[in-house]
Amino acid sequence: MTLDKDDIYDIAKAVVKVIEDKDMIKSEENDHASKKVELRSLKTGDVFKAAGYEWIVLNQRIWSQTCFCIMKDFLDDTKPFDEHCNIWKSSSLRQHLQSIRYKIEGNRHDVLQYMERGLLALDGTMANETSSDKVSLLTLDEYRLYRKYLEYPTKFPGNIEWVLLTAVSEENRSAICAVDACGAVKQCYCAKSFNIRPVCTFRSDVLVEKVSD
């Protein structure tokens, strides 16, 4: 088959287009990589992306080289804390959050650090009980401490409370603390459906994508 000048010209244009497209993709990949920063470089209140979610920096713990963070929005589905009891260690929600842990860590099991979580109840019972987790919830004291960074996510309409780690009492195993859309702390039945906002402690040297202000 003999190619005329027009055929040769069209083939040449197609080759040039392929090369340009590859260069553009490579440039976009390099631009994306250049946006990665070490988590330690962010300050309290900054937002970054990890594992398909956006997270808010709550506390840079310099001495342990870790960063305490909370998911900016809620998880997609509401969940009960547990059907029967406000004990975090045996709760169905604790088990459910393991899937988030595996999604964040992937093949790198050092991305998240274990956190010792105090299970002190609202009425002062359970004072000596703790739990060690890589994915957890805010305690009531932490909510009070970081409240100014914790608006109710506007992309989730409605008045469904988001659940905290803090039980109301050891004597009343059906009640758990939660935050309503106005920011007020409420006592709720642990088997109702809650919005879920996980917290994690990341290694401060992991590379993340900072979200612009």
Rank of each mutant, 00 (worst) to 15 (best):
T66Y: 02
S99L: 10
W88S: 02
R101E: 15
F68T: 02
D76F: 09
L75I: 04
R101V: 05
H96N: 12
K72H: 12
I70Y: 06
L97Q: 03
D77I: 14
W88G: 06
T78K: 09
G106F: 09
R94T: 03
D110P: 08
D73A: 02
R94H: 08
D110T: 14
Q65C: 05
P80T: 04
Q95Y: 14
D77S: 13
L97W: 02
R108G: 03
D82L: 07
D110E: 15
S90R: 13
K103Y: 12
S92V: 02
N107T: 10
Q98Y: 14
R108I: 09
Q95L: 14
S90V: 13
I100S: 01
W88H: 08
H109L: 04
K103L: 14
S64I: 04
N86D: 14
C85K: 10
K103T: 05
K103D: 12
Q95H: 14
C67L: 09
L97Y: 05
E105P: 06
H96I: 07
H96S: 13
L97C: 05
H109G: 07
T66W: 00
D77V: 14
G106L: 10
Y102P: 00
I100K: 00
Q98A: 10
H84L: 11
K79S: 00
D82K: 03
L93A: 03
L75Q: 06
I100R: 04
H84F: 11
S64L: 06
F68C: 06
R101D: 10
K103W: 07
D110Q: 12
D82C: 07
Q98C: 09
C85D: 15
K103I: 06
H84N: 13
K103A: 14
S90E: 15
I87Q: 15
H109W: 03
S91N: 08
E105Q: 15
H96R: 09
L93F: 10
Q65F: 01
D77W: 12
